[in-house]
Simulated assay, not measured.
Amino acid sequence: MAASSANSAAPICIKEVSVGSFKFEIYIKDYPCFESSPIFTFGGHEWRAKCRIDFLKHVELLVVLISDADAVKATIDFSLLDKDGGEIYVTNGCFNVLCTIFIASDTTKVKPNQSSSDLLSDSDSLIEHLGDLLKSQNISDVTFEVDGEIFNAHRVVLAARSPVFMAELLGPMIEGNKKCIKLEGMMAEVFKDLLHYIYTDKIQDVGTKFNQHLLEAADRYALDGLRKICEDRLCRDITLDTVVSSLGLADQHNCGKLLDYCLNFAAKPENLLQLTLRQEYLELMKNCPSVFAKLSERASASLDFQKIIYKK
Rank of each mutant, 00 (worst) to 15 (best):
L65I: 09
L194D: 03
L133A: 05
I39C: 07
D84W: 12
Q114N: 12
S116N: 15
S121M: 11
I101G: 02
I181P: 02
C230W: 00
H154F: 11
E189Y: 12
R220S: 01
N138G: 12
K29C: 03
P269W: 02
D201Q: 04
L120A: 14
D201Y: 08
H58R: 10
L295A: 02
D147M: 05
G85K: 08
A74T: 11
V63F: 05
L277M: 12
N211C: 12
D82P: 02
I181N: 02
E280S: 14
N287C: 03
V206P: 00
D122L: 14
E283N: 05
E25V: 12
C13E: 09
I203W: 08
Q279K: 11
M166G: 01
K312M: 09
A9T: 03
F165P: 01
M285S: 10
L258M: 07
L61Y: 02
F40Y: 04
L130I: 07
D193N: 13
V64Y: 10
E145L: 12
K286I: 13
V64M: 08
K228H: 14
P269Q: 06
G248H: 10
S116I: 10
I309A: 06
C235V: 10
P11Q: 08
A167K: 04
L183M: 06
A71P: 01
L303C: 07
S67M: 15
I101T: 05
V164A: 03
P38K: 15
R236S: 14
I103Q: 07
V97R: 02
T41S: 10
Q274K: 12
S36F: 06
S136E: 07
I12S: 02
R161M: 06
K178W: 00
D241N: 13
N264D: 13
E189V: 14
S117E: 11
C288S: 13
S302V: 00
P163F: 01
A293N: 11
D193W: 00
I14T: 06
V156K: 05
I39W: 11
V291Y: 02
L258C: 02
L226I: 05
D241Y: 14
A218P: 01
R161I: 01
D232S: 09
L169T: 00
R236T: 15
L258P: 01
E216W: 03
N177K: 15
L258E: 10
S290K: 14
A222H: 15
S296E: 09
S302M: 00
P38F: 04
S67R: 13
A267G: 03
N96P: 02
D304L: 03
K109M: 15
N113F: 13
K83N: 13
E297H: 03
S300N: 11
K307M: 09
E60K: 13
F265C: 06
V97A: 10
I203R: 01
E35I: 00
L119H: 00
S18D: 03
F165S: 06
L130V: 05
G248S: 09
E297K: 09
V243F: 05
N211R: 03
S5L: 08
V244P: 03
